[in-house]
Design a binder for these strands. Structure first.
Length: 469
RNA sequence: GCCCCCAUCGUCUAGAGGCCUAGGACACCACCCUUUCAAGGUGGCGGCACGGGUUCGAAUCCCGUUGGGGGUGCCA
């Protein structure tokens, strides 16, 4: 046994990268970092019907996004399980040669029929002592020994399995291809994996894997099964039902730091009264033994709250830079050449406290970059429904012609007009806001107008007055 | 069906027999601040699933019940 702990993350490339996978990867990565170990990435691409090469790059990109850097010295891989097929078959043959496995010529239908007649599900060990050798259509099954298999799990403690409840499971398919349980173990042995940290759904097949390790003469790794991430119905998060794609959250403007921090509060908690902690603290404090045993609901609301917190903590320049993908691409509702970074930077401090995810930003500043502001008709009608709305907005317009153009002066001017007619600023700003920004809510009005500029402000007020008739 | 895991506010969690009148966070509600909306501040609502033990003492240990979940493929 070498002294370097070797962890691994072994996803299959069957779709977008799952947030549950992200958390499992994070656990392994953090453990590798804090123990000066190695994080091995192994792509389990043996299910030819479901694999797509594009997903492999997606996994690598997603890992990089959450800080699991493929160029870091603690990172090793990616390895591809399919490349080790011959090695896995060789291991299976070794198991056959040593009597730990035997061939069986029964078809799935025959097994099913026998089970039905016997009244107990599963394979009944029919070919255990028939002395069959390898042949077309024959599968290789593991000869599960009598006794009890105890899995020592770093999260759950000792878990006992009575071997009579474990059927003689398949190692090699009728077509000669290895199945998951074999491939997984043989690769782990080949790659000198010492610690297997994965989701709880794998706990039931762990005794099988442990038996294979032993039968192959290897020392089983340290196991740890971490709780599942579930949806609101408390069912395992699924790609079909739930919003689980890491890429999707990234595209909506969740920042990686918030995602990582949030993911780490599921099933584990940093010490102290705050859950918002930096990655270095997490790496320092994380312990498998303090991971919870029960499943955790992936709460998008709380994720967004964390994200808002992270966004607000950023220096405004960093926030502004983080916003750019949403402001300069086709995600933005205005032509790319109308975006002005300097203008955005001026309004950014006010946007920063008002968004939870970055994708909300464009709608908050579109009035600055759109040639013609898009008026929300309902908001407009409501704002201009008051008796005073039209005349006072006209007065504001007239005053704005020569008022000093900064937010304080603008505010004082509007306030004065309101005071003369006994209309509070809170109400009076409504028609002005819709006229100039198209909406009833947004960043502080006078700051917005200061950035918008006098000419455009006057032009929009004119247009609104015309519209209000 | 069988095997395995789990059980603290709605949710994520703190809690390793007395520090618990059970702490924090998200959500929710109220108030304050306020140029809308936020942000921020203050306060509030709200939980140890149930039943038995063990113990001077149990959210914490044991057993059972109930409930939830995972697995049970020649998928990974």
């Amino acid at each position: 046994m070498s002294g370097t702990p070797r962890y691994r993350f072994a996803p299959s490339p069957t779709g977008y990268f799952h947030v549950g996978g992200a958390r499992t990867a994070l656990y392994n990565w953090i453990l590798a970092l804090q123990n000066d170990g190695v994080f091995v990435l192994r792509i389990e691409d043996t299910d030819e019907s479901r694999n797509e090469p594009q997903w492999t790059q997606g996994i690598i990109d997603a890992l990089a996004w959450i800080g699991i850097d493929g160029t870091d010295t603690h990172f090793e891989g990616p390895y591809f399980q399919s490349a080790y097929a011959a090695n896995q078959v060789a291991a299976a043959e070794k198991l056959f040669a040593s009597g730990h496995a035997y061939y069986c010529d029964l078809t799935s239908e025959q097994i099913h029929d026998r089970a039905k007649i016997a009244g107990r599900p599963g394979y009944d060990g029919f070919s255990r002592d028939r002395g069959l050798t390898a042949g077309p259509g024959r599968s290789l099954r593991f000869r599960v020994p009598a006794g009890v298999t105890v899995v020592h799990d770093e999260v759950r403690g000792a878990v006992e399995f009575d071997n009579t409840t474990i059927e003689d499971f398949v190692l090699l398919r009728g077509n000669g291809k290895p199945v998951f349980v074999l491939a997984n173990v043989v690769d782990d042995i080949t790659m000198n994996i010492t610690h297997v940290v994965r989701a709880e759904e794998h706990l039931p097949n762990t005794p099988k894997q442990q038996m294979i390790w032993a039968a192959l003469g290897a020392t089983p790794p340290s196991w740890a099964h971490v709780p599942l991430l579930v949806n609101e119905q408390r069912k395992k998060l699924s790609k079909r039902r739930d919003k689980v794609a890491l890429e999707q959250y990234r595209d909506e403007g969740v920042v990686a730091e918030a995602m990582v921090n949030y993911l780490m509060t599921l099933g584990w908690a940093p010490t102290g009264d705050t859950e918002i902690v930096d990655f270095a603290t997490i790496v320092k404090d994380f312990k498998l033994s303090s991971v919870n045993h029960s499943s955790a609901f992936f709460d998008i609301k709380k994720l967004n709250a964390f994200n808002g917190e992270y966004l607000r903590q950023m220096p405004v320049e960093a926030f502004s830079a983080a916003c750019e993908p949403w402001l300069t691409s086709d995600k933005a509702p205005w032509p790319a050449d109308r975006f002005d970074r300097g203008v955005f930077l001026r309004i950014a401090p006010h946007v920063q406290t008002r968004v939870a995810v970055l994708s909300e930003v464009p709608a908050m500043v579109d009035f600055l970059f759109l040639a013609d502001v898009v008026i929300d008709a309902a908001a407009f009608d409501k704002a201009f429904s008051a008796e005073w709305a039209r005349p006072l907005t006209q007065s504001i317009h007239d005053r704005f012609v020569d008022v000093e153009w900064n937010h304080d002066a603008l505010k004082i001017a509007v306030e004065a007009i309101g005071a003369a007619s006994d209309v509070k600023l809170g109400k009076l700003q409504a028609p002005l806001r819709v006229a100039t920004t198209g909406r009833s809510v947004g960043p502080p009005l006078f700051e917005s107008l200061e950035v918008l500029g006098r000419n455009e402000t006057l032009r929009r007020i004119d247009a609104a007055l015309a519209r209000a008739g």
